[in-house]
Design a binder for these strands. Structure first.
Lengths: 249, 249
DNA sequence: TTTGAAAATTTGTTTAAACAAGTTTTTGTT
DNA sequence: AACAAAAACTTGTTTAAACAAATTTTCAAA
């Protein structure tokens, strides 16, 4: 697939950081050098670096340079700031994903559901319950609610593979962004049974609620992902915006 | 404080979105119009919009425009992608923060601590336990570990107010970025007592581990924030990077 | 009225240039 | 050798311009 120049540079720098081609705690080559290396303009190389900063791979220091502060993290972590299907995430980490469809029904939105997900009352939807395994261990129960209007033709078979692949490649839907809220909630009987949890041991779990939008600005998916507390791990990097005077060291 | 132009535009657009000056689901004024409004270049206005996209406030659609998809969220939520002290976050949400210092000691890093936080064995540190209240309710227990080398002169009194304010304004430290990991963990006796938790009710809690870096690339702070499960709420927005062919709505 | 091509409009990418601001190195003077 | 000023180098901000790509609008022909 044709890529943009800054994306190629971004990925190349990222790789060089991850493979220790750039030394930890050292400065990356200066913008001027990178411009020569990649034969591009300053803006383009700065755009790539900007993404590395957001990723927490480097920190950029006026007058000094760009310092590599990347440290490898443990596997199996879900990284924030990206929309990935379970399948994509697992494959990225070299793990073996398996998905079992517990429930696949068509229904319309009642008041309770409308309140928690925001779909209009009476909307026609697909409701899918899926259990996700990683390397044979049941880790996540997903409750997916898809607006039928935008996801025609979903089947149980598709749900066993990858729904996003179907939406993007077959229906040519453009998935734009996803708002997520993480909370801790009590486990239910379903959680207990499916994830082999023991309330004596863990009576809570991590819950990620996602609200996903297409290019029409419509929220077409609401998903509640209920994670085994022992395996849940979310990563994030925050950049401090200078509130006061900078200066020093 | 002197601000950059794009930051002024960003904040102004953000305000106009939050106050419904721009209609939900409608397109914002085109870049050309914004250029006239703010009397700036296209790059500058695009930089501001880029931040709104990252915030999940708008979605930007080639050939169409920039659509307002902002929905107000409940208060008391901690938003990812920013480094904020408890105090800053509370004040931003118009809540009354209170902090009680449970423990303030100077110590050196032992093997157990070195393993979980990454400080070199034997480093001199401040170890601070603080209980944070919001509107009178105890919500968070923080275990802060600061490298003494970079945070000289910390006192219990400062810890009762704002440590970050001290580091930035008095020591003129530049805090750059913070890596965070969210997990769910068993509650301890301290948690149970301080947060008035009941193991029958909740035997787990949300834990946010932060690794914070200064402008020298040194991780000078490790903090474990243990949140009351009932009040913990983390927000995030993810932008889908097109994996396949776009095309269509 | 419908269809389809052309034009206009919108966002996306890339280059170039200038100046500001912070840090490091060099240089010259004492 | 020590100090201070100057120069060089680094990232940060802003403007300008050109072209690409996607969508919407216009308009002419059927």
């Amino acid at each position: 697939m044709a890529k943009s120049k800054y994306d190629v540079i971004y990925k190349d720098l990222k790789r060089k950081i991850e493979t220790d081609e750039f030394v930890y705690q050292e400065l990356l080559p200066s913008e001027n050098l990178l411009i020569q290396t990649y034969n591009c303009s300053r803006n383009t190389v700065r755009r790539a670096i900007g993404r590395l900063v957001a990723d927490g791979y480097v920190q950029s220091l006026q007058g000094k340079g760009v310092r590599n502060i990347y440290r490898p993290i443990e596997q199996s972590a879900f990284t924030l700031g990206e929309i990935e299907s379970f399948r994509e995430s697992a494959l990225r980490n070299g793990q073996i994903p398996k998905t079992k469809v517990l429930l696949f029904v068509e229904m319309s939105v009642d008041e309770r559901l409308s309140n928690c997900c925001g779909f209009p009352l009476g909307s026609e939807i697909y409701y899918i319950q899926r259990l996700h395994y990683l390397d044979g261990i049941p880790l996540i129960i997903n409750h997916n609610y898809f607006l039928k209007e935008f996801t025609h033709g979903l089947t149980k078979e598709i749900a066993e593979e990858s729904i996003y692949e179907y939406l993007e490649q077959i229906l040519h839907m453009t998935i734009v962004n996803s708002r997520r809220i993480m909370t801790v909630e009590k486990i239910t009987e379903i959680d207990e049974k499916c994830l082999k949890l023991n309330a004596e041991d863990y009576n809570c779990m991590a819950v990620v609620s996602s609200f996903t939008y297409n290019s029409q600005g419509v929220m077409f998916e609401y998903t509640q992902s209920r994670h085994h507390p022992n395996y849940f791990r979310f990563h994030d990097n925050a950049v401090r915006t200078q509130t006061y005077n900078k200066k020093y060291v």
